[in-house]
Simulated assay, not measured.
Amino acid sequence: MTRIFITGSADGLGRLAARTLLDDGHEVILHARDTHRLTAVKDLVDAGAEAVAGDLSDPDQIRAVAAQVNRLTPPDAVIHNAGLYTGAAIMPVNVVAPYLLTALIAGPSRLVYLSSGMHRGGRADVTGVDWSGGRAGSYSDSKLFVTALAFAVARRRPEVLSNAVDPGWVPTRMGGPGAPDDLRLGHLTQEWLVTGDVSDTGGYWHHQRRQSPHPAAGDVDFQDRLLRALADFTGVPLT
Results as ranks from 00 to 15, higher is better:
residue 74 P to E: 10
residue 213 P to G: 14
residue 13 L to I: 14
residue 37 R to L: 08
residue 60 D to V: 14
residue 175 G to L: 13
residue 65 V to C: 07
residue 70 N to W: 06
residue 171 P to T: 13
residue 46 D to P: 03
residue 44 L to Y: 00
residue 50 E to P: 01
residue 207 H to S: 13
residue 122 G to P: 10
residue 120 R to S: 09
residue 21 L to S: 03
residue 35 T to F: 08
residue 137 G to K: 04
residue 56 L to M: 04
residue 152 A to F: 05
residue 132 S to W: 06
residue 135 R to S: 15
residue 146 V to F: 01
residue 174 M to K: 05
residue 89 A to M: 12
residue 51 A to I: 07
residue 212 S to R: 15
residue 98 P to S: 06
residue 109 S to M: 12
residue 230 L to R: 05
residue 34 D to G: 13
residue 124 A to G: 08
residue 86 T to A: 12
residue 13 L to S: 02
residue 143 K to R: 11
residue 32 A to W: 01
residue 226 L to G: 03
residue 159 E to T: 13
residue 182 D to T: 12
residue 48 G to Q: 10
residue 145 F to E: 02
residue 60 D to C: 04
residue 222 F to G: 00
residue 216 A to C: 13
residue 171 P to I: 11
residue 222 F to L: 09
residue 79 I to R: 00
residue 132 S to K: 07
residue 102 T to K: 00
residue 151 F to A: 04
residue 197 D to G: 06
residue 83 G to F: 02
residue 139 Y to A: 02
residue 224 D to F: 01
residue 178 G to L: 14
residue 143 K to N: 02
residue 213 P to E: 13
residue 212 S to W: 06
residue 54 G to D: 06
residue 63 R to G: 07
residue 222 F to Y: 07
residue 145 F to M: 14
residue 84 L to V: 08
residue 129 V to H: 00
residue 78 V to R: 00
residue 220 V to T: 15
residue 151 F to L: 15
residue 14 G to D: 05
residue 149 L to T: 05
residue 228 R to F: 04
residue 65 V to F: 04
residue 23 D to E: 15
residue 118 M to C: 03
residue 74 P to H: 13
residue 2 T to H: 03
residue 41 V to E: 01
residue 144 L to G: 03
residue 212 S to F: 08
residue 186 G to L: 09
residue 135 R to E: 15
residue 196 G to Q: 08
residue 185 L to V: 09
residue 181 D to P: 06
residue 18 A to C: 12
residue 34 D to F: 12
residue 234 T to A: 11
residue 56 L to P: 01
residue 41 V to W: 00
residue 87 G to I: 12
residue 112 V to I: 12
residue 11 D to W: 01
